[in-house]
Design a protein around this nucleic acid. Structure first.
Lengths: 116, 116
DNA sequence: AACTATCGTTTCGCTACCGTATCAGTTTGC
DNA sequence: GCAAACTGATACGGTAGCGAAACGATAGTT
């Protein structure tokens, strides 16, 4: 890339990658769900419901529901914290890692095709 | 940016921008809706329902419903094609332009903070 | 032991999305 | 002129999201 990403470049990149994701027929995650998933896989653990809720600026049920959905898809896994059983620790899965890696590849590929 | 966007950089950029969008409390568009909106604003007209459906690889009702929703939000506008009244021409709005511009600014800002 | 605080989940009523099938209106082709 | 083709919209039944409120389980406090 050049010195910085320009707005128009950014938007073209965004559209291309989103288009590839939509056409890909994979899990159709909401923006919130994808944000949660990225946070889990990009930042070191532990990840908790309340932490994610605070980060995203949403209520806790939003996180619980998103984890329900993505858990059913196999993208994340939940376990009770053994030291404080009120907490739930959100863990990564192989399937989730593969999804994130695929997303990264899609963005990079679209960026290359745009010369970004 | 350097020579190319690496996968990890791409994912961090993606997460940061999506996080900013989620926290922004703006219209909560689905991935499909946002893809449609970007297509309308980045590519020259005319844009039609069938064209967008073919591009995204979805059925026509998906496009109609997305346009219903985004139309109610003021992000797009629909008009009948005068030369062929079967067609509907999808048009941009000031509000939609502002939304897209804001999205571009968010991505660029997050990219700058990541040094991408 | 009893009270309080915290954590994640569940419930409620509601809204919006999905895919499939079908629709009315318009144009095309014979 | 009239049937076929095509466009976008609509109906249907089902699924999943939302915010607000309440809940059960656990931990901390006195």
């Amino acid at each position: 890339m050049t010195v910085h990403l320009r707005a128009s470049e950014a938007l073209y990149l965004w559209r291309s990658a989103m288009l590839a994701m939509v056409r890909n027929d994979g899990p159709d995650l909401t923006q919130r769900q994808l944000t949660i998933l990225l946070q889990i896989y990009l930042e070191p653990p532990p990840h908790t419901v309340r932490g994610l809720a605070a980060l995203l600026g949403v209520t806790k049920p939003v996180i619980t529901r998103a984890l329900d959905t993505m858990g059913a898809m196999g993208l994340v896994h939940r376990t009770r914290d053994k030291t404080d059983r009120r907490n739930v620790v959100i863990q990564r899965t192989v399937e989730g890692s593969e999804y994130i890696e695929q997303l990264g590849r899609i963005i990079v590929r679209q960026g290359e095709e745009l010369g970004v």
